[in-house]
Amino acid sequence: MKFGVHFLLPCGAGQTPAARYRDALAQGRLAEDLGFESVWPAEQHTIPSQSVLSCPTLFLAALAARTETILLGTAIVQLPLFHPLRVAEEICTLDVISGGRAELGVGRGTHPAHYAGFGADLAVSRGRLEEGLDYLRAALPGRPFDFQGSNYTAEAVQVVPGPVQPGGPVIRLAANSADSFRAAGRAGIPVLTALHINPPAVLVRHLDIYHAARAEAGHRAAAPDDITVLAPTFTARNEGEVARLMGPAVDHYTALMRTNLTTAIGRTGDPDGLFTRLLSGLDRLDLAAMRTEQAVFGTPETCAETLASLAARLGTGRFLAWFDFVGTTPAAEVERSMRLFAAEVAPRLATPAASSID
């Protein structure tokens, strides 16, 4: 199994954005030193309590200057908010700067505040996402291309600079709904999904849709590397430390999500029902419940058992650990958890021939 580190950057009490970025970049550098395969920051907009990370490619460019080998992926760029040519230019520039280490995670995004901030229409976002994916697949190899769609057109356009990687950076689609899994399957591209949004039983059903769509479209069967799972993660020496640090984190997460989801439902009426389902689930969410299905919290032994179960149930070969998911955990504790995970969790899931945690 390959392991990466995920970043969302809410500021903790009394923490400035500058301090939050400083800590996250240091943790990204530490991730490389510990042998993690990749780093994945998420794009968020206009809600500082949720995150101050609005430009993941800029964050990754700064990290590229501090690292040498770790893969640099976006998880995610909200593709319908931007012209896909601009997205292609940014990720190819990152690929050049980093010496061919860029990967492009894209998604639709569903928070109405993000769309309102850009004056964009959430109602047409799925069509823009799927057409944007087609555009990116034509653009990322770096050769001149033509494109004709409902939202975007191109005639002999070329991404400059072209990528270092032949064919361009890998595209991964964030998928947390049946429609997104189906779209990824039809396109034959890898998926990136979040355990805190869909528990394993739901993901099994969604992945069945993904596999069926791949087969129907004539694509090869998905490999473990095509399925990336992200989850809040914390590893500690004993259960007391898990409770001391993750109990307040889960409480803060629940309160933050309740506010954000209530606001989102008020703006849109929640036509897909996703926000309402997530909101109702918060009434039952505490540390014990989150550990059952939505997070990987525990001692090295219990974290390894949880990950082995996920790999078996979901067929995933890639896991992104979200070590500080709400900004309440001190940076020193986050780094201690990263070190323990790398030393005592990852090796339990590595093949005998593996020399590092990828």
Results as ranks from 00 to 15, higher is better:
324 D>F: 03
235 T>Q: 01
185 G>A: 00
37 E>G: 11
343 A>M: 08
346 A>Q: 04
90 E>W: 02
68 E>C: 05
267 R>Y: 08
56 P>L: 13
270 D>C: 14
61 A>H: 11
37 E>D: 15
130 E>A: 06
1 M>T: 02
327 G>C: 04
226 D>T: 06
208 D>P: 12
203 L>S: 09
133 L>F: 06
169 P>K: 03
253 Y>V: 01
20 R>I: 08
214 R>M: 14
255 A>S: 14
262 T>C: 04
173 L>I: 12
200 P>Q: 07
171 I>Y: 08
40 W>S: 06
345 V>C: 07
30 L>Y: 10
128 R>L: 11
279 L>A: 09
142 G>W: 06
136 L>Y: 05
335 E>T: 13
177 S>P: 05
231 A>L: 05
161 P>Y: 05
175 A>C: 13
272 D>S: 15
139 A>I: 06
57 T>Y: 07
341 F>K: 11
127 G>E: 14
288 A>L: 07
128 R>W: 04
285 L>C: 02
310 L>R: 03
95 D>L: 01
344 E>T: 07
185 G>P: 00
302 T>N: 03
355 S>H: 12
37 E>Q: 09
58 L>K: 05
54 S>T: 13
187 A>N: 01
306 T>A: 14
211 H>A: 15
37 E>A: 14
106 V>D: 03
175 A>D: 06
257 M>I: 04
98 S>K: 04
260 N>L: 14
137 R>N: 03
107 G>Q: 01
157 V>P: 02
27 Q>I: 15
63 L>F: 10
145 F>G: 05
258 R>M: 11
341 F>C: 02
329 T>H: 02
74 T>G: 01
304 A>M: 01
205 R>Q: 15
173 L>C: 02
99 G>M: 05
237 R>V: 13
104 L>Y: 03
56 P>R: 07
56 P>K: 10
127 G>M: 00
269 G>R: 12
